[in-house]
Nucleic acid binder design. Structure first.
Length: 363
DNA sequence: TAGACGTGGTA
DNA sequence: TTACCAAGTCT
């Protein structure tokens, strides 16, 4: 069946009128007070939407407030050093969001006079702005009737409309976008889209949804059939692969510590870390030789001082942290440097390596 | 299409 | 502890 036929079939006999009205009334009454809801400033909406990608509201709030203080306008963000932006993002995760956001904002400042585009073509061309974020900005900041389909929306609508397609599939997301195009309120698309997400966050939660409090219970097909606990359908993801490392906490004679910047693409791009030796490739006994070759420095390794187990979405780092001293040699590596324990505070580190900071002693 | 890309909260 | 998740995007 073609997708448009599927849409028509699903919405046949569905009381969209009542659904819209109940959802919007509820949202206007029950919505949470959140910093990015203070006004409709497209820049604020944009920053909030990027931060909220795959990230909890409670986690985002302090980051958002600080970020808006430090970079209140597109111009402020565009002219900031990238390292400052990454430092403001430190601990939030998915760091390419920060780089993409800054690059896109620079684009807006250069080509659109600092005004966030209000059309889907220009918006969608911006780095890091995908179908969801595009629709969120257009509906929330510009009151346009565009779908903004995220995980909440798919969960809520899969229950309301009893859609049993796998929401992990891309084709299912486009199905929901088509459904929202039919359902969305033309009078208040912002309240409709946000209401759908708010409902998913507060009432129509993944586990044990609060159906007794739901403003659209009467319109919910899953509830009427007792299937709310079985939806949405979502295929499992794979287990993370384990990667063993030795992380080196290396001090020189001045008491400075060796840190290095990661490559500008891939995992934790452009963030800083303590040197890491992949134990699956380098035997532990070969570390001093390997290190001399890579960094130009001879080190004396002593005891293991810590063990850091860090879980990512797709892999796991197991790091034995070893203390070491510089014996001789000059650092011969572009992306690495010895840094004092005061200076190191300015560098953006991933959480996995912040766990190693506690071995910095200030005596 | 499926895997890369972070982190912290919760059952 | 394990597993899943939370307002996705890029390749």
């Amino acid at each position: 069946m073609k997708q448009q036929e599927r849409v028509s079939y699903i919405l046949e006999k569905f009381n969209a009128e009542a659904f819209r009205a109940h959802l919007i009334d509820w949202f206007k009454k029950e919505q949470r007070i959140l910093p990015w809801r203070e006004n409709q400033d497209p820049y604020r909406v944009w920053v909030s939407e990027i931060m909220l990608q795959q990230t909890r509201v409670d986690t985002v709030i302090p980051y958002f407030n600080h970020f808006m203080e430090q970079f209140p306008t597109p111009e402020a963000l565009a002219s900031a050093p990238e390292q400052d932006v990454l430092k403001a993002w430190e601990g939030l995760g998915y760091y390419s969001r920060a780089r993409n956001l800054q690059n896109a904002v620079r684009e807006v400042v250069e080509h659109y006079e600092g005004k966030v585009p209000d059309n889907k073509e220009q918006l969608g061309d911006l780095k890091g702005v995908g179908p969801y974020t595009k629709g969120a900005i257009l509906s929330i900041a510009y009151d346009q009737a565009e779908p903004a389909v995220d995980g909440n929306v798919m969960r809520v609508l899969s229950r309301i409309l009893l859609v049993e397609e796998d929401i992990a599939k891309a084709s299912t997301k486009t199905l929901f976008e088509s459904l929202v195009r039919e359902l969305i309120s033309k009078e208040d698309p912002s309240a409709f889209n946000q209401g759908l997400m708010e409902l998913g966050a507060i009432i129509c939660t993944p586990k044990s949804p609060s159906c007794m409090l739901c403003p659209v219970q009467d319109e919910c097909r899953a509830f009427s059939e007792g299937k709310e606990g079985e939806l949405p359908i979502k295929s499992k993801k794979k287990k993370q692969k384990k990667q063993p490392f030795v992380a080196l906490f290396i001090e020189n004679e001045k008491g400075e510590v060796l840190v290095e910047q990661r490559p500008s693409n891939g995992l934790l791009a452009s963030l800083w870390q303590y040197p890491m030796v992949p134990i699956s490739e380098i035997a532990e006994s070969d570390i001093p030789d390997w290190f001399r070759g890579e960094y130009g420095i001879t080190i004396d390794i002593d005891s293991t001082i810590d063990h850091v187990h860090h879980v990512f979405s797709h892999l796991i780092w197991d790091m034995s942290v070893k203390r070491a001293q510089v014996r001789k040699g000059t650092l011969d590596r572009e992306n690495a440097r010895f840094v004092s324990k005061e200076q190191i505070q300015k560098y953006p580190f991933p959480v996995s390596h912040q766990k190693i900071h506690k071995h910095l002693s200030f005596n």
